[in-house]
Design a protein around this nucleic acid. Structure first.
Lengths: 342, 342
DNA sequence: TTGTAGGCGTTATCAC
DNA sequence: GTGATAACGCCTACAA
């Protein structure tokens, strides 16, 4: 038995396919009684409404928005920062019957696989933690997918909701500087597989992550007192091993800035492992102000990530929303993990 | 200027559209050189590959799998159990370039809105925390979406990965019974908006949640010693208010079983608020064994949720995978939150 | 290895 | 309020 389509229904009822279509999409275009007939016939024949793919093709709308998360998709769910973003985003999105499409950005060996981005059925796309010039974004743009960027852009026509990461870096840098720190290390997630060795990086090796501006802010304030070190990916264990690597060196830093709180928590673990007192022997700070930062006494830069999530969602859903470019302010939260340099 | 399609490319190159299509989908069907020409021309004209909607319509595959999460989508991200499931699921899914579609199940007043489920472009669907007879699942089934159910099913043809919730309920029930508890209350998430009053329920009011079998297991073992109480939705605050409501009553129970650890943590809070000692004055237990259960000393039923996530993902991606019906065992974890009844 | 042709199921446009 | 018809962009037999 053949598949039930609008045509089946139309034939069965002796009406035209457009009327059937209207019964679903424009209830005001036909009498309530006829609509009732259509719907009940549909029920009877087991027709569950217009086919999603056909509808998407014809109407040009998928009723879904895409979110691209740093690194492999599976990592994102263990990142409180990503979770905060997704929660806020979904609160808005779900009021519009729109679905969220999460695309993996799998790394095949060393180069990443963009197939999922290329194939996804979405109307608009945003990202978390990816630099706006990331290849995946280029692909989506070429596909004609509407983009909500995550960083300040030049183009007055582009849509973005950014957080003032550079400002956060500067504030944190000033804080450390005023505490007398002259030897500061920055730990950054470089999207490497777990277990990668920590190593020193040059400024331009920071990669396609949007933390780049956090680092830039730090560099501006701390200047030559700074070195950059890679962690594997954004996980406590990575922060711990990078911290451990740094703290065992003879030129041990007096302060470590992790570019995310998750990494910072790992650095705190590393310090504890080595019997170092924080903040006496070492100052540690992070970025994000995730829920776990407070109990850990972590000095950090609070990101209005939920605000951003909400705002991004509005722009994903409605391309014509006002305020299509917005820079959200950060806030330096000083807790007990930073203190004067020895 | 018109949109670039396979036809544009074909005309431009003086070849046929099928060859262009093959360049993307069947590299082995044309010479490497020709393929190169196609791809570079595509680049030149700004063609980003086959249109997702058209491809989905024509091929019948969306390269995406859907996940339906209890309650409103936004709640799910704060549920450690859901996060564990999603993490495991995505680990598998991302190796196949398949996207995950998260559909909201918004409640409009009292009846829920299935629009998103109806419109989503997906090949297969699974759920977490929804009973298999939930209306959303009916809709998806009628649409012809392949389903991976979450509970044991009658149909030998159906695909499911279940966790032995009833067994878990029975084990927990026996445990409490052997401790002498005669007055036990069960707290269940009923998907009500936050702030709903706790109230007593009859067994059949438990609703479209799959925790029903957890409760059934408890009922089998504890029989008449049991009453059922509603919490708002799955959140610590809901558990706390339900717990508080129960513990202030004159017929205060000697043990409270929450059907999720998240709710149980709230019950513990309520006990603490009232100055009750756990487990001396009150035994508390949960279900799931989320990460926070261990530090809280919570007796609970461990769910192999990550195993389930992986297994479900495999079945979502490959309909012909073997072992299309699987019941995963649970494990009773006894910690310090349960003790003898007074 | 490449080309031809038909149709996937729907919605938009316009006529009635 | 309702109907006819033409796309939407692509994939896949099948033929060459």
């Amino acid at each position: 038995m053949a598949r039930v389509t609008v045509k089946t229904l139309a034939d069965e009822l002796g009406i035209s396919v457009s009327t059937v279509s209207n019964a679903y999409n424009r209830p005001d275009q036909l009498s309530a009684r006829l609509r009732e007939r259509v719907l009940s016939k549909a029920d009877e024949l087991g027709y569950a409404g217009p086919d999603a793919a056909a509808r998407a093709l014809r109407s040009g709308r998928a009723e879904a928005v895409g979110v691209l998360l740093t690194e492999r998709l599976s990592y994102a769910f263990s990142d409180p920062y990503a979770i905060g973003f997704l929660t806020a985003l979904s609160e808005v999105v779900e009021q519009h019957h729109v679905s969220i499409v999460l695309m993996p950005l799998s790394l095949d060996g060393d180069d990443l696989d963009l197939t999922a981005v290329r194939r996804a059925n979405i109307d608009a796309l945003t990202t978390l933690g990816l630099a706006d010039n990331h290849p995946a974004i280029q692909v989506a743009k070429a596909r004609g997918v509407r983009l909500v960027y995550s960083d300040v852009g030049e183009d007055p026509e582009s849509t973005w909701v950014a957080i003032d990461d550079a400002g956060g870096g500067r504030q944190l840098g000033s804080h450390l500087r005023s505490l007398g720190h002259e030897n500061v290390a920055v730990v950054v997630d470089t999207n490497r597989p777990a277990g990668s060795e920590a190593r020193e990086l040059t400024d331009d090796q920071i990669g396609f992550v949007d933390y780049a501006s956090r680092f830039r802010g730090l560099r501006e304030t701390l200047n030559r007192r700074l070195r950059l070190v890679s962690a594997g990916h954004n996980a406590i264990a990575s922060g711990r091993s990078a911290g451990s690597w740094l703290l065992r060196r003879s030129d041990r830093p007096t302060a470590i800035v992790a570019l995310s709180d998750v990494l910072a928590l790992g650095v705190l673990d590393a310090a504890r492992d080595l019997g170092l007192d924080v903040p006496r022997d070492l100052s540690v700070c992070g970025f994000d102000d995730i829920p776990a930062a407070n109990p850990a006494g972590l000095t950090t830069v609070r990101q209005p990530i939920r605000d951003r999530g909400r705002r991004v969602a509005e722009l994903l859903i409605n391309p014509d929303a006002p305020d299509r470019q917005m820079l959200l302010p950060i806030e330096l939260i000083i807790r007990s993990s930073t203190g004067p340099a020895l």
